[in-house]
């Protein structure tokens, strides 16, 4: 897959809480996703400009990401604003982290490996209910073809005979719908043979929180089981479209 020029989801939005940081990988590159106190999301190279340690091990304090190792702190603009060993001196402007484009949409945090943001993602549905992030030992293309072949059982009774419709919303975002229900699946190419699927329900929490989420989690776990169990891939695929 051509990695340039597309948005990629790297996390469900609620998985990175305000005031915390997490490491993620995209095409083998290590990135840090962090949210400031107000919940604003930031995506940087996961490397401290001081000695190159991983910033994702650090801590968020007063809207800044601090490095665990020697406490250098970086503001939302990526600029180093504080060096504990030299608290009184002006920090040179050149000391800054490498930022990546970022966007929060469809209940996921997105980034891109290009310097400039790719063309905008489509507008999202009004209400999203998160389900899960699945991490798979396969290439993005293999995960995508398993997703295409899967059948989505609707959560609410009455829709049970509805067929599954697969739709490409954006180059890395897909919709599976069954009757009046639909889920969105964002595709993250973690590394050559590692892929993550970020799954959300297009619908409000009042309908789907609890049992609805569990229902689609079970669907997702079955999908993963098929991908991880090669013998199931040749014959006899229960629950899949003919």
């Amino acid at each position: 897959m051509d990695m340039q020029g597309h948005w990629y989801p790297v996390s469900l939005a609620h998985s990175v809480e305000p005031g915390s940081a997490a490491g993620v990988r995209l095409d083998g590159r290590e990135l840090v996703v962090w949210r400031d106190g107000e919940g604003g999301a930031h995506v940087w190279e996961d490397r401290c400009p001081h000695r190159g340690m991983r910033l994702s091990l650090g801590f968020v304090r007063e809207g800044r990401l601090g490095c665990l190792y020697h406490g250098w702190e970086f503001g939302a603009d990526g600029q180093c604003s504080h060096i504990p060993a030299h608290p009184d001196s002006q920090v040179p402007k050149a000391i800054r982290t490498r930022p990546y484009p970022k966007e929060v949409r469809f209940g996921m945090i997105w980034t891109a490996l290009s310097a400039e943001p790719p063309p905008p993602l489509p507008e999202d549905a009004a209400e999203i209910t998160p389900v899960a992030s699945l991490y798979l030992d396969c290439a993005a293309a293999a995960a995508l073809s398993a997703l295409r072949a899967s059948r989505l059982p609707p959560f609410r009774a009455g829709d049970h005979d509805a067929g599954t419709v697969f739709e490409t919303v954006a180059p890395t975002l897909f919709r599976l719908s069954a009757g009046s229900e639909s889920i969105l699946v964002g595709l993250q190419a973690v590394a050559a043979e590692r892929t993550a699927l970020h799954i959300v329900i297009e619908g409000p929490g009042v309908v789907y929180a609890g049992q609805g989420q569990s229902h689609f989690l079970r669907w997702a776990q079955e999908l993963r089981h098929r991908i991880e169990t090669p013998s199931l891939n040749s014959a006899n695929r229960p629950g899949e479209a003919p």
Binding site: S11, L12, S15, E17, S20, A22, G23, V24, S133
Partner: peptide, 14 residues
């Protein structure tokens, strides 16, 4: 084993 792929454990551990 990085913590990247265990978002629920990450939040719990915080």
């Amino acid at each position: 084993i990085d913590h990247d792929e265990y978002p629920a454990l990450r939040r719990w551990s915080r």
